[in-house]
């Protein structure tokens, strides 16, 4: 297959008053044309920073320490600002978190998209752009007569659809969606995710989904990457990762949340809190919260290796149980480890 995007050992730090925040550390993956990648992790794990690095939209205090971002064979960080601007929207578009609020309230929604098209493709005339917006609206499921309405006349779900239409406006080959449905109710979320997926398949576009919600990622991704404290801990085909999670963090994350299907099961608690990235733990960054951690985990940084075809892992002590029987492990956990486990103190 044809590789569209490739990250090689991407390492990016932010300078703050208190020191350097190690926001992204040695993140590598590649994405083929037409594939969808889901990046899952908790807030502050660096998933949004990865997206911003790919868009080359980093804040002024960010520093690319090492690594490369190759998009369609070009190293993004050797291109000029002008060349990158050409790539943005036309090749890589982004749907931001809380994107519904990114529409300008004083212009009609249709005009904003027309404007975006005309800006990025000066050769397109306004009438042609309007025609395209009409078909985009049809694609994302907004009645085209609502083109000339203003954002406040749209519901939350419609605004989100309009933002997706805007991202699709210049036929990009990659769209990065950062928590595209977090603020929406489940029924609307479901509809929008289905629509994005359908469009993606139809036009063979690549997609990077970023979310804190394991379930959302499971539904829309071909490949899943699990991030923690600035590092990728595991990445592989969605079926594989969800059936046979190898990293204890992946495993815990998948079992930390109650499900609406099957029998009611006990939830896995991850003790403690994510680390401060000003001074991340040595060795594996997850070791302070990991039940399986050994001396090696505390001291040596685990290497990023391919364990089976396309399934990458950074862990010294992978989970060996199968997904189905894995809950036995829960029962054997030491109760109430650290500040966020309950059971340290009895009632009265």
């Amino acid at each position: 297959m044809d590789t569209l995007l490739r990250l090689e050992d991407l390492t990016m730090h932010y300078k703050t008053k208190a020191g350097w925040v190690q926001a992204i550390d040695n993140v590598s993956f590649s994405l083929h044309r037409g594939q969808s990648l889901g990046l899952v992790g908790e807030s502050g794990c660096g998933k949004t920073s990865v997206a911003m690095s790919i868009m080359r939209l980093l804040p002024y205090n960010a520093k690319l320490v090492k690594g490369r971002v190759l998009f369609g064979g070009h190293d993004l960080y050797t291109l000029s600002d002008e060349e990158v601007r050409q790539l943005r929207w036309k090749e890589v578009a982004m749907i931001f978190q809380a994107a519904m609020n990114s529409l300008n309230p004083v212009y009609s929604v249709g005009n904003q998209i027309v404007e975006a098209i005309v800006t990025h493709e000066p050769e397109t005339g306004e009438d042609e752009a309007r025609e395209r917006v009409k078909s985009l609206f049809e694609l994302v499921g907004i009645p085209k007569e609502r083109m000339d309405h203003y954002p406040h006349e749209y519901s939350g779900g419609m605004k989100q659809r309009a933002v997706i239409a805007m991202a699709l406006a210049c036929n990009p080959s990659l769209i990065i969606a950062d928590e595209p449905t977090t603020a929406l109710d489940v029924i609307v979320q479901d509809k929008i995710l289905r629509e994005i997926e359908e469009i993606r398949r139809t036009i063979n576009m690549s997609m990077i989904y970023i979310s804190h919600d394991v379930s959302v990622i499971a539904e829309v991704s071909d490949i899943v990457g699990v991030m923690y404290a600035g590092r990728l801990l595991e990445l592989g085909p969605a079926d594989d990762v969800f059936k046979r999670p190898k990293n204890p963090y992946t495993y815990s994350l998948m079992n930390a949340y109650p499900s609406i299907l099957g029998e009611k099961h006990d939830l896995v608690t991850i003790p403690g809190e994510p680390p401060n990235l000003l001074d991340p733990p040595t060795g594996c960054r997850f070791h302070p919260r990991c039940d399986w951690a050994t001396k090696e985990c505390r001291e040596v940084e685990p290497a990023w290796r391919e364990i089976t075809k396309g399934h990458y892992l950074a862990c010294h002590n992978p989970v060996r149980t199968e997904h189905g029987t894995a809950h036995n492990k829960t029962a054997r956990r030491a109760p109430g480890k650290g500040g966020d486990g309950i059971g340290t103190s009895g009632g009265n």
Binding site: Q189, D190, L193, S215, D239, F242
Partner: peptide, 9 residues
Amino acid sequence: AVPVPDPAI
């Protein structure tokens, strides 16, 4: 409409 954490479903 609730998403499920299992790509197989």
